[in-house]
Design a protein around this nucleic acid. Sequence first.
RNA 1: GGCGCAUUCGUCUAGUGGCCUAGGACAUCGCCCUCUCAAGGCGAAGAUCACGGGUUCGAAUCCCGUAUGCGCUACCA
Length: 490
Amino acid sequence: MSQPVRVRFAPSPTGIPHIGNMRTALFNWLYARHTGGKFILRIEDTDQTRKVEGAEEKIYESLEWLGLEWDEGLDVGGEYGPYLQSERLELYKSAAEHLITQGHAYYCYCSPERLTQMRAEQSKRKEPPHYDRTCRELTPEQQAKKVAEGITPVVRFKIPLDGKTSFNDIVYGQVEFENVLLDDLVILKSDGFPTYHLANVVDDHMMQITHVIRADEWLSSTPKHMLLYDALKYNAPQYAHMPMTFGKDKAKLSKRHGATALLDYKSMGYLPEAMMNFLVLMGWSLDDKTEIFSKDDLIRHFSLERVSRTGAIFDMDKLNWFNGYYIRQLTVDGLIERITPILGKELPDEVKRPIDEDQLRRIVPLIHERLKLLNEITDLVSFFFVEDVQHNADELVGKKMTGELAVNALQSSSDKLSSLVEFDADSLENLLRPLADELGLKTGQLFGTLRVATTGKSVAPPLFQTMEVLGRDKCLKRIGSALDMLKGVG
RNA sequence: GGCGCAUUCGUCUAGUGGCCUAGGACAUCGCCCUCUCAAGGCGAAGAUCACGGGUUCGAAUCCCGUAUGCGCUACCA
C-alpha cells in the first residue's frame, strides 16, 4: 500500500529563488532522502507574462550550491517528463476538456474588464469579491452567440454549491472549508496555458507525487485542488504546508529586507553547509538541544511531523554564527580551497598570481577562527602579501603611548630584530617580552605599536606568529618606514 | 469585508495535563584567558507561555471568546 515517496520542488521562473523558496526545496529534498524516495524538479512556467529570462538557470544554480541534487527533472530527465509545464500544454487542455464533458467545468466568456469592474462594485458594497457565475449555465444558443462574437473563452471549474471540503495536512492537521466560499476558478487561460491549480494537479498526479510539501500560502487553495482531484478521479497526494519566512519587521521577506536571494548569500561568503543548517532550523527542530546538523544528520533525522506551524523571522545574526562555526570546522586545506578564488580576484595587482599556496598555508591557521564570512579574507590577510603597508600615526603611537616612546620602542626593536638568529615566533617572544621591560613599557604598549608598524592594522592575528610569517625583511622594512613617518621624515 | 492559519525570552525554538518557580541556541552584558581582535570557558539578564473566561485536584499544554499578525480571496504562482 505504501508506495515509494515522490516529492517535488516546483518553482516558477519569475525571479531568483529566495530564502523561503529554497527552504521549501530543502524540506522536500530532505524528506525524499530520509525516506529513500525521489526528489523531482519541475519548472512551472505557466505565466508567460511574468517569466524572467535566466531565472531557470538561477534555480539550478541555487539547488546545486545548497547541494540538493534532483533525481528527475530538467537536465537529468526521468520517465515522467517533460518537466517543463510549457511543454505539457496538451495534457492540461485535454484534462480541461474532459472536465467540461463531465460537467465539472465550463467555458467563460466574461471579459477581464467586466470582471474587474464587477469585483470593484462588490467590494464597494462590502461583499467578498467573487465571480458571479454568469457563464456557468449558459444555454447552447448563448454560447454559440459568444463564439460568433469571436471571444476566446477561458475554462472555469465548477465548485459545488454546497458542502464542505476538508483534508488532513501533515503539519496543520485537519482543515475544513465551506464550498460556497470558493470561487469558480479559471483553470485554462485564454492563451491556452493552464493556471497553477490545474497544471499542478495534473502534473502531481501524472508524476505520481505522493507528498506535496509547499509553502503555507497555498493552504487556502488546497480545497480547490482537492475538488479538482475528485472531479478528475485522481487520488490526492498528502499535503504538508510549511510556515512562511519573514523579515525583521514580520513582513513577508522582500527586497527591502536586504539580500533575500539564496545566491546573494553565496556571493557574500556564506558556506552552503551553514546555510542548510540555518534554513532547516527555521521551522524544524529535532529536540530542545541539538543545533548543529550535518547533511547526513539531517537526512537521518528529518521528519515532516516536527515541522512547526508558526512563521519564522530570518535572523542574520544566527546565520553568521553558523557560518563562523562551519568555517572553524573546515580543515586548513578545505579553507584554502574556498578562499583561493576570492583572493585571486581581490588581492591588489602587485601580488603575484597564482597566490603562493605555501605562504597561504602558513597564514590560514592565524586567521582561521577569526573568519566569519569567506569574503572577509582579503581584508584579513592582504598585509601578508603586499610589499608595503600604510601607517596611521595615531594608531602607531597608541592610546597609552607618546610619540617619543613609540619611536624609541621601534628603534630598539628594529636593532634587536636585525641581529636575532632565528626569526620564529618563540625567539621573537623571548626577545620582545624582556625588551618591553627594559623600555619600561607594558607588553601591550610595545606589542601594539609593533603590530601597527608591521601589519598596518591595530587588529591582527597574534604578533609573534604574524611576524614569523611576514619574515625579517618585511618586518624591518615596515618598522623602518613607520619610524620615518613618526620622525616626520618622508 | 469573508475565509483560513498562527500567537512561549529581542530572534530561532523545546514543551502534547503534574518532571515548568518554562529548557536550549543566537544576539546582549559581565568575568576568566590574553599583545589587539577572535575563539574558548564561566556567569548574568531576558517569557506573569497575546489577553479574558472556563474545564480540572492541577493548564503553556484541553474548550470558548477577544485582540493582534500573516496568508488566501487574479485569465500570479
